[in-house]
Simulated assay, not measured.
Amino acid sequence: MDKVINNNSVIIIGKVVGEKEFSHEMYGEGFYVFKMEIPRLSDCSDILPITISERLLVDMDITVGKNVIVEGQLRSYNRYHNGHNKLVLTIFARDAYMPSEEEYEEKIKKPNEIYLDGFICKKPIYRTTPFGREITDLLIAVNRAYNKSDYIPCIAWGRNARFCENLEVGDHIKTWGRIQSREYQKRLADGGVENKMAYEVSISKLEYVKDDNNREGKEDENGDEIEAEAY
C-alpha cells in the first residue's frame, strides 16, 4: 500500500480562488471541490482543481483568498458526456492546512511539485511548436490501490522530448515536474467555439527504469537519467 501511495505524490502551495462546492459522497463521507491558484516562476500562474474530504475541512477556512498547502495525488476518472468519455483530472488531497506567513513564504519558493512512477500506456507523440520548441506528449498509467490506475497526460520538452519520442508502450519511467493548466478553444458543430481548460504534468526530469519494461535486451544505454532543460 505504501508503494502505491508513494508512486504518485503532489504538493502544492497557493491561494484559494473558488468557493468550495459539494462533489459527491462515498461510504458516508462527503467530498468537496475547489480551485487554487499556484504561481509559476514566470508572471503566470496555474489554476488547479482540488478534491478534498469533509474530514480535512474541520477547522479550516477554505474561502477565496486564503493560502493553503495541499499534499496528495493527481488522480483521473472518466466522465461520460454527450456520448463520449472524457478524462478528468483532479488533485486528491490527503492532507491540507493553512500555513503561517513564515511557512508560506518559505514553501512558496517551490509551489508546485509532482512525482509519478508509472508506465507508458499510449504511443508518445513528438511535435514542434510554431516557435520551434520540441514537445513529446505522453500518457502515463500510475497504479492505485484496489487494482485501479490513474492515467496522467504529461509533456516533455527539449532533449527530454527527443528521448521520450522513442519510448514504447509498457516502458517504466519515473518523472518529476509540475502540474499545469492550459486554456484552449474547442470548435463546436455550429461553428462557434467553447473555452476549455486542460491539465497536464510538465516534466522537468525523468528516469527510465531499464530493468522493468516490455523490451528485449533491457540492458541498454537508455537507462541513464535525463536532466531537465530549463523551462
Score class of each variant (00 low, 15 high):
7 N>T: 00
7 N>K: 09
12 I>A: 08
14 G>L: 09
17 V>K: 03
17 V>H: 11
17 V>L: 12
17 V>Q: 07
18 G>Q: 15
18 G>F: 04
18 G>P: 00
19 E>S: 14
21 E>D: 06
23 S>C: 08
23 S>P: 02
27 Y>F: 10
29 E>P: 02
30 G>L: 06
31 F>G: 12
32 Y>L: 06
34 F>C: 12
35 K>E: 10
38 I>M: 06
38 I>Y: 03
43 D>C: 01
44 C>S: 15
46 D>F: 01
46 D>L: 01
49 P>K: 00
53 S>Q: 08
53 S>R: 08
54 E>H: 04
55 R>T: 05
56 L>I: 07
58 V>S: 04
60 M>I: 13
60 M>Y: 05
60 M>K: 13
61 D>H: 10
61 D>Q: 12
62 I>L: 13
63 T>S: 15
63 T>M: 13
65 G>T: 00
66 K>E: 15
69 I>V: 14
73 Q>F: 00
74 L>D: 02
74 L>Q: 06
77 Y>G: 06
77 Y>Q: 12
79 R>Y: 03
83 G>T: 02
83 G>Q: 10
86 K>F: 14
87 L>A: 07
89 L>A: 04
89 L>D: 02
93 A>H: 02
93 A>Q: 04
93 A>F: 07
94 R>E: 12
100 S>N: 08
100 S>Y: 05
102 E>K: 11
104 Y>F: 14
105 E>S: 12
105 E>L: 05
108 I>Q: 07
110 K>Y: 14
112 N>D: 01
116 L>K: 02
120 I>C: 03
121 C>W: 03
123 K>A: 12
124 P>M: 04
127 R>G: 08
129 T>F: 03
130 P>F: 05
132 G>Y: 11
134 E>Y: 09
135 I>Y: 09
135 I>S: 08
136 T>F: 03
137 D>A: 11
137 D>Q: 13
139 L>Q: 07
141 A>W: 02
143 N>Q: 10
148 K>V: 01
149 S>M: 09
149 S>Y: 05
151 Y>A: 04
154 C>F: 05
157 W>Q: 05
158 G>E: 07
159 R>C: 03
160 N>G: 13
162 R>D: 12
164 C>K: 06
164 C>D: 07
166 N>T: 11
167 L>A: 01
167 L>T: 10
168 E>D: 12
169 V>T: 12
171 D>C: 08
174 K>L: 05
175 T>E: 02
180 Q>G: 14
180 Q>I: 14
181 S>Q: 08
181 S>P: 06
182 R>N: 15
182 R>T: 00
182 R>A: 00
183 E>W: 12
189 A>H: 02
190 D>H: 08
192 G>R: 12
192 G>V: 07
195 N>R: 15
196 K>G: 01
197 M>H: 07
198 A>T: 07
200 E>G: 05
201 V>Q: 01
201 V>H: 00
204 S>W: 11
204 S>H: 14
205 K>R: 15
213 N>F: 13
216 E>G: 13
217 G>Q: 04
217 G>H: 06
219 E>V: 11
221 E>R: 10
225 E>F: 02
229 E>L: 07
